[in-house]
C-alpha cells in the first residue's frame, strides 16, 4: 500500500507538487492522470525514492521512503520515463545485473528473469544489446527490470509514450495482465489509455490533486450534467426568449458562428433529456428559424478531465475572457 501525506516539492520558487495526499490500496491498476508538467513524474520520482521531497511523507507498506529507503524500495519496481538501460549490455546481462543489484538470490534470479521475459515477450531479444532494440522493446526491458525482485507495487511512468499503435496495444495488455498480480500505478496524459487499463484514477493539475476516485464514480459524478448542443439561424435574444419558457434548463452558453448561426450549449436536468429536444425543435420550427444541428452531449471522462484541469488553471491564473459568454439561467 502506498500512502502519501501532504507531499510538497519545490524547485527554487517553482512548486512542482503541492500538498498532495492520497492512498493506493492493494491490487488493480491505478492511473495517474494530468496534463504535461502537472507534476506526475516528480511525484513518481519521490514515491520511488529517486527524489527527496521538500516536505510531506511517503510510506510504502508502512516503510517510510526517506527513513527506510532500502526496505521501501524493495517493494517497488519502477520504470522511469526513459527506460534506464545500459546500451553496452545485452537484455540478459542487464536483467541479471538488476536482479543482483536488487539482492535477488541466484536461483530465484533465474526464475524471475524467465518470468519477466515471458510476460514481456522478450525471449527473442534476450541476447541482443539494448542499444539495438526498438523503442517498444526497450520499454519492455524497462518493465521486465521493474518486475525483478518480485515487488508488490509496479510504477510505470508514461509507459506508452513514443510507441507505435501496435506496441501501445501490447503494452496496455501487459499492464492489465500485471494488474492481476501486482498493484500497478501508471502515469499518463492520455485519457483513453487510463480508461483502457485502469480501474481508478487520480487527476492532478499544477501539482494539486483535483479528483481521486474509481473511473465509474468519476464518470457518474458528472453524468448528471447532460447538455444539448443547438445550432440555429437566429439571434441570441430570440433564442433566449424561446428557451426561457422551457423547464429543466440549467444554463446556456452562446457562441456566434458565421452566417447568422448561433451555437448554444444548453445544460439540462437529466430528467428532461427525453422531452427537451423535441420541444426545442417545434419551438424554432414555429418561429421559422432553421435548426442546423441538434445533438445531445453526454459528459465523458474527457470532459471531466478537461474541466478539472482547467479549473485548477483558473484558480491559479488570472481570469481571462472566453469567446463565448456564459449566462446562468436559473
Amino acid at each position: 500500500m502506498i500512502e502519501v501525506k501532504n507531499l510538497t516539492k519545490r524547485y527554487g520558487n517553482h512548486t512542482a507538487v503541492s500538498d498532495l495526499s492520497f492512498k493506493i490500496g492493494t491490487g488493480n491498476v491505478y492511473g495517474f492522470l494530468g496534463p504535461n508538467g502537472a507534476g506526475k513524474t516528480t511525484t513518481m520520482n519521490i514515491i520511488t525514492g529517486c527524489l527527496a521531497a521538500t516536505s510531506g511523507e511517503v510510506s510504502i507498506d508502512g516503510y517510510d521512503i526517506f527513513d527506510e529507503p532500502e526496505k521501501a524500495k524493495r517493494l517497488i519496481g519502477y520504470l522511469p520515463e526513459q527506460p534506464p538501460l545500459y546500451p553496452d549490455m545485452t537484455t540478459e546481462e542487464y536483467l541479471k545485473f538488476v536482479a543482483e543489484a536488487k539482492g535477488v538470490k541466484k536461483n530465484d534470479a533465474k526464475r524471475q528473469i524467465r518470468y519477466a521475459t515471458e510476460i514481456t515477450k522478450l525471449q527473442d531479444m534476450f541476447k541482443r544489446q539494448t542499444k539495438y532494440l526498438s523503442k517498444g522493446y526497450r520499454q519492455r526491458v524497462g518493465i521486465a527490470q521493474a518486475l525483478l525482485g518480485e515487488p508488490q507495487i509496479v510504477i510505470l511512468d508514461e509507459p506508452t509514450v513514443g510507441l507505435d499503435p501496435r506496441q501501445i496495444i501490447d503494452i496496455r495488455e501487459l499492464i492489465k495482465q500485471l494488474g492481476k498480480s501486482h498493484t500497478v500505478v501508471i502515469s499518463s496524459h492520455i485519457l483513453s489509455e487510463v480508461r483502457a487499463v485502469c480501474s481508478a484514477a487520480m487527476i492532478i493539475s499544477k501539482g494539486k490533486m483535483v479528483a481521486n476516485d474509481t473511473l465509474e464514480n468519476l464518470e457518474r459524478m458528472y453524468a448528471g450534467e447532460v447538455s444539448i448542443i443547438l445550432r440555429v439561424k437566429a439571434g441570441e435574444i430570440d433564442i433566449r426568449r424561446e428557451l426561457a419558457v422551457m423547464d429543466g434548463i440549467l444554463g446556456l452558453t452562446f457562441t456566434q458562428l458565421g452566417g447568422g448561426v448561433t451555437e448554444v450549449v444548453i445544460d439540462i436536468d437529466e430528467a428532461f433529456r427525453e422531452k427537451l429536444p423535441e420541444k426545442i425543435f417545434y419551438a424554432f420550427a414555429r418561429l421559422n428559424k432553421p435548426i442546423i444541428h441538434l445533438s445531445e452531449n453526454q459528459v465523458s471522462l474527457e470532459d471531466v478531465f478537461l474541466e478539472l484541469t482547467s479549473q485548477a488553471d483558473i484558480s491559479t491564473e488570472e481570469p481571462h475572457d472566453d469567446a463565448g459568454t456564459e449566462v446562468s439561467n436559473k
Partner: peptide
C-alpha cells in the same frame, strides 16, 4: 547522459 542514474537511485542501496 543515458539516464541510468535513475535506476541507481531507485535500486535498494545507497
Amino acid at each position: 547522459h543515458q539516464k541510468t542514474d535513475q535506476l541507481l537511485y531507485a535500486l535498494p542501496f545507497n
